[in-house]
Design a binder for these strands. Structure first.
Length: 593
RNA sequence: GGUCCCGUGGUGUAGCUUGGCUCAACAUGCCGCCCUGUCAAGGCGGAGAUCGCGGGUUCAAAUCCCGUCGGGACCGCCA
């Protein structure tokens, strides 16, 4: 070993010891005679000091070094006098008097500062990712990610789970997201697909009698990027046999409830046990199936009051089967006309025709462009339903139910951001259950499963598949944390007859189903146990625990928004011979001139 | 496929609205000299950007216009 101790571990009690350290020059303070160097390794910082009188060679060597050079230093640990203790440093009570210095490597001046937390252009960070990863922020994030995964592995191991790897080269499934394809050399014109998730394989492991499976699984989806979406990402993938949905939910809840105090002790749960909302309740109260429950601003239904009222915009919307719902923005009656216009623009961008408002002045007077259309009683009823008090701002949208939910749900989150309502250290975990089994796809004229093809209806709703599929609920559950879906799963269908009915409901023809999922259907004929599972997006979870707003910050080598790796410059063209081996002829789009 | 924002020394920004006083300012980093207790060390000095790229308007463009490239956020998409 190049070192006897790490840079972060030396304390007062080590004083007098001769130690050998190795690490990077984090910062140097050259006083001409005395030289101080902060030496950094992953475990911390320690101050080296070189005195020309006692060890001229070490002093001369440290006079030459620059930021990010790699050093090995032999020296003696010395207590610092009380007035020179650095309380900001774990090793601040001591310093190491250098007696021998070996330069293990020099370094170019880095393109950005590693020893300072200042914003750097993200492209530059990604291009020099190996330097970016030296920063305290990234080391912190990678450490947290490791701790999360380690806790999960230990916990699931203790609970009888087996970690099993599944193939990266698998079969394409045109349902769902776009696949990343890998052309076959041996089979001309044929492709493997990288898994969007190990969904089928984990179910087959249940047929295989594994009973309790998990995997830290890499998943691939060729879709456009977002702050919380990368082309490849990591899921905690779990599948269990002989379980009902509560068993799966309880497991995850117990695991994460125990994990978070260990990995992020400064975070606290909004509520335990975690609330379980039905889909309908989530929509009615928050307008979304992935709500942020840390703050109020809940939606209030005034459809019944708007119906037949004097305000034709509201009444007309109800007439056509729409809803009218509002949000009481408590104490924000001071919003200016300009701010209200901005909010109106915001909901318009998302499909609402407009945003009605009523401001209750401190005096109790109403300021609103719409109250004149209501009778006094109608206005009173609305204020009462909205629990309006002086100083409040009431906002309303009237439209088709889907538009009302969507726009008010977004507006609620938007307002909370504007008003800084969500405490980042509070974790508002909740479960959303009882999803509709399928949504009607108006364009395709067919039912579209809300989770996936193998999700079972709720046991009590199974019979509805023949009579009223629109009322059937799925045995699906989503775990939501502060406006983000962090896990989702379901109890699966293990009954062939039911599976056939589901395929038929969603318009998947028997031959096509056979071709794509023949291996699944065949497997289910050999004693498939009742089973279900869940998958949890680890990047997203770690991102939220790390207080980051982009999953790139918790992935060592992420892609940019354009799905490029700017460090390695991937994707890149292959050699002509490689294409030939794969039987590929290119048909590239014309170069734009 | 669409909408919006950004692009100025190595890094982070100012300047742009209202073109000329700017061969571009500040901070930090870098280089050199001085300095024995600093820890974002300090002092003095120095180098470093033809303002993403191309075209246009103009006597004159970092600044105005058009195009283009790159980056970011979002919508669509992501069962």
């Amino acid at each position: 070993m190049y070192k006897t101790h790490t840079c972060g571990e030396l304390r007062q009690t080590d004083a007098g010891q001769t130690v050998t350290l190795a690490g990077w020059v984090h910062r140097r303070r050259d006083h001409g005679d005395l030289i101080f160097i902060d030496l950094r390794d992953r475990f911390g910082l320690v101050q080296l000091v070189a005195d020309p009188e006692t060890s001229p060679k070490a002093h001369a060597a440290l006079g030459q070094v620059r930021s990010e050079w790699v050093l090995q230093v032999v020296g003696e640990v010395r207590s610092r006098p009380a007035e020179m203790v650095n309380p900001h440093l774990a090793t601040g009570e001591i310093e190491v008097v250098a007696t021998a210095v070996t330069v293990l490597n020099q370094s170019e001046t880095p393109p950005f500062l590693i020893n300072k937390e200042e914003p750097v252009d993200e492209n530059t960070r990604l291009k020099y990712r190996y330097l970016d990863l030296r920063t305290p922020r990234m080391q912190r994030n990678l450490t947290l990610r490791h701790q999360v995964i380690k806790f999960i592995r230990d916990y699931l191991d203790e609970h009888g789970f087996l970690e099993i790897e599944t193939p990266i080269l698998f079969k394409t499934t045109p349902e769902g997201a776009r696949d990343y394809l890998v052309p076959s050399r041996v089979h001309p014109g044929m492709v493997y697909a990288l898994p969007q998730s190990p969904q089928q394989l984990k179910q087959l492991l249940m047929v295989a009698g594994i009973e309790r499976y998990f995997q830290i699984a890499r998943c691939f989806r060729d879709e456009d990027q977002r702050g919380d979406r990368q082309p490849e990402f990591t899921q905690l993938d779990i599948e269990m046999s002989f379980v009902q949905r509560e068993d799966v939910m309880d497991l995850i809840e117990d695991m994460y409830t125990k994990m978070i105090p260990v990995v992020t002790p400064h975070k606290r749960f909004l509520r335990t046990p975690w609330p379980r909302l039905t889909y309908q309740e989530a929509m009615d109260r928050f307008g979304k199936d992935n709500p942020d429950i840390r703050f109020g601003l809940e939606l209030v239904d005034i459809t019944d009051l708007a119906k037949g009222s004097g305000f034709s915009v509201f009444a007309g919307a109800v007439e056509q089967g729409g809803h009218v719902r509002g949000i009481n923005v408590k104490g924000q009656g001071g919003y200016s006309r300009k701010q209200l216009d901005a909010l109106t623009d915001y909901v318009r961008q998302h499909g609402a025709k407009g945003l009605a408002y009523i401001i209750v002045e401190e005096s109790g007077e109403l300021r609103s462009p719409i109250t004149k259309f209501f009778s006094e009683d109608e206005t009173k009823a609305i204020l009462e339903r909205m629990a309006a008090e002086p100083g409040d701002l009431l906002l309303f949208v009237a439209d088709k139910p889907a538009v009302v939910y969507d726009t008010l749900g977004r507006l609620r989150v938007h307002l909370a951001e504007e008003l800084s309502l969500g405490d980042p250290d509070v974790l508002g975990f909740c479960w959303v259950i009882d999803f509709p089994f399928a949504f009607w796809d108006e364009e395709e004229k067919r039912w579209d499963p809300s989770h996936h093809l193998f999700t079972s209806p709720l046991p009590e709703d199974k019979a509805l598949i023949d009579t009223a599929p629109e009322r059937m609920r799925g045995a699906q559950y989503d775990l939501v944390l502060n406006n983000n879906e962090v896990a989702g799963g379901s109890i699966r269908i293990h009954d062939q007859a039911l599976q056939a009915k589901v395929f038929s409901l969603i318009g998947l023809e028997k031959e096509v189903a056979e071709q794509r999922f023949g291996h699944m259907l065949e497997a289910f004929q050999f004693g498939a146990p009742p089973h279900g599972g869940i998958a949890s997006g680890l990047d997203r979870l770690v991102m939220l625990l790390a207080d980051e707003s982009n999953i790139r910050e918790v992935i060592a080598f992420p892609k940019n928004q354009n799905a490029r790796d700017v460090m390695a410059d991937a994707p890149s063209p292959a050699d002509a011979g490689q294409y030939k081996d794969l039987h590929i002829k290119l048909d590239l789009p014309e170069e734009k001139k």
